[in-house]
């Protein structure tokens, strides 16, 4: 029992550092995208034209934006099922309040962004203080917001001034401005997640919120933050959709509630929280967009596209599990 010579407690087996699980996941999604491109190239030569890729890049924007906010809530082990209704409500408010008046664009958009954030924070409050499961809180909030949207209007409403559609359709050198901005936002959020204390805390809270609380981390603040961010990005998506369609619709967001979860998990963020990279979410959104694009080229009816999407989800999440087990 000499106190000077230390015997290592466990068999010290050198382990080589391999690519991280996140990296493998990104590569897998990338491989799937490449596979689709190869199939597309074989099937039709129009698929490989730059305009086509530019279109896909543009079309992925709305889903990518709403999924970004969803990624953050899922990273903390939560979920936000109010995003769909939130998009619906905020989109009718946006177009209804602007109503073709270009002077109103800026104040309304700022107001909508603030409102979305506030609603998100309200979700977070429900999770933190009411201590209700996020699934239930956000579901309830979703119902309320959908109701309010329908109170405001039951039909498409409002219009947008000239030039407002450039948010959705604007291109510089053939590249979608909205799409590029979205990709940039992803990079910024990723940097925030990796290089700031708060960002790391988001992962820690998702990994084990109990432990995070014991270590004195600001768990509540982080939860408020991610739900607020989810609301913010839902607002961004709402404005983007108004720009794309020219008016707000009271059911504009309905499909986004569950759809926003798909790119998140396909990209490798675990629903249990604390694991995964938001670049996976971005790639997941691109994957779904390019898949739709390919199926359009193949003249596959929309109906069957859904089947394909469902099967892709099944395949992606099954493969994911297999990886996790082996490592």
């Amino acid at each position: 029992m000499s106190a000077t010579i230390l015997t290592p407690p466990a068999t010290p087996r050198r382990v080589r550092r391999g690519p991280s699980a996140d990296m493998l996941r990104l590569l897998m999604v990338l491989a799937l995208i490449l596979a689709i491109i190869v199939v597309g190239a074989v099937v039709t030569d129009r698929f490989m034209r730059p305009e086509n890729f530019a279109n896909v890049f543009e079309q992925a924007t709305d889903l990518a934006l709403v999924a970004l906010g969803q990624s953050l809530t899922v990273l903390t082990g939560g979920i936000d099922l109010s995003v769909g209704s939130m998009i619906s409500l905020l989109s009718v408010l946006t177009s209804g309040l602007i109503d073709g008046n270009s002077a109103m664009v800026l104040p309304v958009c700022l107001g909508i962004l603030a409102g979305g954030t506030l609603l998100g924070v309200l979700n977070g409050c429900g999770v933190v203080w009411l201590r209700v499961h996020p699934l239930i809180v956000t579901l309830g909030m979703g119902a309320i917001l959908q109701g309010v949207a329908l109170l405001y209007t039951r039909a498409p409403i409002g219009s947008i001034p000239d030039g407002f559609d450039s948010l959705a359709y604007g291109r510089v050198a053939g590249i979608s401005v909205g799409g590029a901005a979205t990709a940039l936002i992803f990079v910024l959020v990723a940097a925030f997640l990796r290089y700031t204390n708060t960002g790391r805390t988001i992962y820690a809270v998702g990994d084990d919120s109990q432990a995070a609380r014991l270590l004195g981390m600001p768990v509540r603040r982080v939860i408020l933050l991610v739900y607020g961010a989810s609301g913010f990005f839902a607002a961004v998506t709402a404005i983007y959709l108004v720009s794309r369609f020219g008016s707000g619709q009271p059911y504009a967001g309905a499909d986004y509630t569950l759809a926003s979860v798909t790119p998140v998990v396909v990209g490798g963020i675990a629903l249990s929280g604390g694991r995964g990279s938001i670049f996976g979410t971005l790639l997941g959104a691109y994957l779904l967009a390019i898949l739709n694009d390919l199926l359009n080229f193949l003249h596959v009816p929309t109906q069957i596209q859904l089947v394909a999407e469902g099967l892709i989800i099944m395949a992606a999440v099954s493969i994911h599990v297999e990886r996790g087990r082996r490592s």
Binding site: R194, R200, A204, D207, A211
Partner: peptide, 27 residues
Amino acid sequence: EFVLFPHLSVAENIFIGHYRRNRLRAV
């Protein structure tokens, strides 16, 4: 019961909240 985060690295677990920072104050 350990207060550890299973999906974070050893280094992150040790320094969580007290990371080494670079000149930009980034982790």
